[in-house]
Nucleic acid binder design. Structure first.
Lengths: 122, 122
DNA sequence: TCGTCACGATTACGTCTGTAGTCAATAGGG
DNA sequence: CCCTATTGACTACAGACGTAATCGTGACGA
């Protein structure tokens, strides 16, 4: 039942996942510079995330400190699954195969994944 | 420079990637039933995809037949890359690792991917 | 020939998103 | 004690999206 996180909201979440709790101002300072957001924009996004129950805030003097209510790993799992379901019929193999074909996989990737799979077996 | 494909538009694209060219009516018939779209909705989406230059149409008597201008593989590659960049720092290994941890990978997946990687190493 | 139907084009409209300005309260400096 | 700077709340607003009704035109059966 967790509500959708938009792209802009996601940028805010990454900041909070990296470190929390933070004040609105601290979040604004840590958001990637490319975004060039005004402090107000960040506050709006924090407000929307609050309304969606994706973050919480605790009073600290005359301001708030915000912290995530959902774990990054859960979010990431959901997004990964959605992509696999939508584009690869829910299977991981076609995803890996696709990326391999596209030369988006390096020799090092191959070695790392092989090691990973080896650990998983047994 | 290819424009964004929204979620609803993507459902239409899947139909056309599966078979094309198709008339608007044929597309409507083939769209997954869960969507429960009216024929008009499908036509609107076809119109938007046309405007975005993601599909083309050829006149056929008093109607059109629509066909994709972008390959599914290209779209899929773009979406996969976006996900990896956004959530896994652009690396494939963490994606696989994440799914493995989450038990979203089966023994068969492991075997298949191992075979795949073996082929790649030539 | 006339009404109806099949199509694409146009228009509609509420919601979500990205981005930000404005307002009200309050705490701190002078 | 008053002015100002900070901070969260509220408001704004254009563009994308999901979903669809309506309009205009040409084809086709009666």
């Amino acid at each position: 039942m967790t509500e959708r996180i938009s792209d802009a909201e996601h940028a805010v979440m990454e900041v909070l996942w990296d470190k929390s709790p933070l004040t609105a101002q601290e979040v604004a300072e840590r958001v990637p510079a490319e975004r060039e957001w005004s402090a107000n924009t960040v506050k709006t996004l924090l407000g929307r995330l609050l309304a969606k129950n994706i973050i919480a805030h605790e009073e600290e003097g005359r301001r708030y400190r915000y912290r995530p209510l959902v774990a990054r790993a859960d979010y990431v799992a959901g997004e990964s699954r959605k992509l696999m379901d939508r584009l690869f019929g829910g299977r991981l193999t076609p995803l890996v195969a696709h990326l391999a074909e596209r030369d988006q996989i390096t020799d090092q990737d191959i070695a790392e994944i092989e090691a990973l799979l080896k650990d998983l077996k047994s």
